[in-house]
Write a protein that binds this DNA or RNA. Structure first.
Lengths: 354, 354
DNA sequence: ATGAAAGCGCTAACAT
DNA sequence: ATGTTAGCGCTTTCAT
């Protein structure tokens, strides 16, 4: 026990941080073997009340805290599921994370988050970090990783993808049905009597392509194919603003605009107001994602909600299932979006009916 | 390769995940000792080109990935700094995280994120997880943890706090000077000729008390003590809305409103518009935090910017310094806020000068 | 340049 | 109920 000065090594050297009491320190102080300490720590029954008390007291006094590193090494499991989030600025992922955390906690696992800041190189390092830490499974949220990299990871550990749609063996994928969401949007607008429904596109953004096809299909379904009008956009406020300006300066004014996400819808809202038009009296406007932005009373945007929390839960359940049943196959899980009607959409005044 | 049935153990048992090639597997395949493999993996010089090539090839073939768990155990360092974020929905912390990550990467450390979802119990578990994983240091962002808990953690490892202000030994604190920020806001407004400057308060929110004192002090400094008017609020949009409504229904209308954060400023904006008043022609409005909300062209709110990224960098540097120089004392670091002028504040029309 | 051996802090048999 | 022992996968002396 006498940790004499002699033990200290060379002067200025960043002294080895040999802090942290170990199971052996506790055993010594409690006067039992380290097995007993281990048993107490793991809550095993077969320990006499007196030993248990002695161990608890010694642990408390020494500020003992189990070393998960050592435990993981012997158990060859960490009970940690890694989550690589491409972008923590995106509230979408914050809510997915809630679902992930909840589902993990429910099963006795913990989540370990890492981020790539929208940079593929950093994302790969972040994933690698999780793998080296021997996370039992990994969820990739919004990853811009190459299929090759994801595939390699999947050979080590169960992987689930959220917000990207690679089809790889050993990789579960959870996606919102963006095609269906766009259909819901167009049907809502058409149901209000609109016929000139324009889309502000999302370019390369996640889900943009599906939303575009959904728009096309729903327009066709409503017999409005000739009215299809797709303005380029990029999921940003500025893109929405520019897109709407072009739309409003054209020959035939749309009576409704469906922006591919809330962000660009807010930009469009500005352009519409600047053009001296009112929403929804003159133009109906829709977004997509149901972000906090859309819920602002100031904006109160009709939009499409993605079940973000549930997406997270699904993804976590998928990897946990494969962690605990190594044989089972990975699947693709599709979740349904929902229409949220707020104040930016209204029935087309009859005088303007085509 | 032949994973024969015989290999499988007892029926339903979650088979031990003995995947993951080890250093020994690689050594065997490369025909060298594990020491050589270790040397190659760590990039040591003293290895013959031929051995190095053999090892690389074997590792590649086996999909070998270093086991950070084993490495950390022997090195007694993980080169991971844990970050417990109280709330990942708060964009504020996302930007702090950027600074944290950048500063860590610069010094060869990696960040490990964990979250408590605004729940003190979950926060404590999240911190505990980091400590058990033997993070070399921990940053607590927005923690609602008791001083006792933080103090106990600080006995194990260097800790830095962001967004809370406990003064404890072994705990660095990085704060934005909220008092000073509020002074900047009031001085800006007073400089535009405003005298009836009301505050919508932030209640118990982080920094609210400092902002309130700053407001008081600056009003006094401008000789406006009799005009001080503080309306209750809670940092939410709804709170800002209600606060502004009360302000506008009173006997003497304020010509400027300083909301304690951007969120409540947006609520106030709504109330002002509903009252038939225009911003900034009739009423000037300010927020605090310079969130994405304030930058929306639709809103374009004059506000106070906190150097979030820099806060993160500071906090990380503080813990890294103490990780590498165990003796050094923890400090309190105060960063300066900045005024961001946008379109919601204007000079008081002379006809309305008191 | 390479190998052998000890040991990091713990769990998991196996004894007793 | 408790102690003993053998590793988990790696790094780190220490030999050679």
């Amino acid at each position: 026990m006498s940790r004499s000065n002699v033990e200290r090594r060379g002067a200025g050297a960043a002294s080895k941080p040999s802090r942290h009491a170990t199971i052996i320190d506790v055993a010594g102080k409690a006067g039992v073997s380290k097995s007993v300490v281990s048993r107490v720590m793991r809550g095993e029954a077969s320990v006499s009340p007196s030993s248990r008390a002695a161990v608890m007291a010694a642990a408390e006094e020494l500020g003992y805290r189990a070393n998960a590193v050592a435990r993981s090494l012997v158990q060859r499991r960490t009970y940690n599921v890694g989550v690589m989030v491409s972008d923590l600025h995106n509230i979408f992922f914050a809510e997915v994370l809630d679902g992930l955390n909840a589902a993990a906690a429910e099963r006795g696992y913990r989540t370990l988050i890492t981020t790539g800041n929208r940079d593929p190189v950093a994302e790969e390092r972040a994933l690698e970090q999780l793998l080296e830490l021997r996370a039992d499974g990994v969820v990739l949220a919004g990853a811009r990783l190459e299929a090759k990299v994801v595939g390699a990871a999947a050979r080590a550990v169960p992987i689930a993808l959220v917000g990207s749609d690679l089809r790889l063996p050993g990789v579960d994928v959870v996606v919102d049905d963006d095609f269906r969401g766009a259909v819901l949007a167009v049907e809502h607008l058409a149901g209000l009597g609109h016929r000139d429904i324009a889309l502000i596109d999302g370019g390369q953004g996640a889900g943009a392509a599906e939303r575009r096809s959904g728009y096309r299909a729903a327009m066709a379904g409503a017999g409005l194919t000739p009215r299809i009008r797709i303005e380029p956009g990029d999921f940003t406020e500025g893109g929405g603003y520019e897109g709407a300006r072009r739309l409003l300066s054209g020959p035939r004014l749309p009576t409704a605009i469906f922006a591919s996400n809330d962000q660009s819808a807010v930009g469009a809202l500005d352009a519409i107001n600047e053009a001296g038009l009112r929403v929804p009296q003159d133009v109906s406007l829709m977004g997509y994602d149901n972000t906090a932005l859309a819920a602002l009373r100031h904006i109160s945007l009709t939009t499409i909600h993605q079940p973000r929390n549930q997406i997270g839960k699904m993804a976590m359940k998928a990897v946990l299932r494969r962690i605990e049943h190594p044989g089972s196959p990975a699947r693709r899980h599709v979740l349904a979006p929902k229409l949220i009607v707020r104040d930016t959409t209204a029935r087309l005044p009859s005088r303007r009916m085509a």
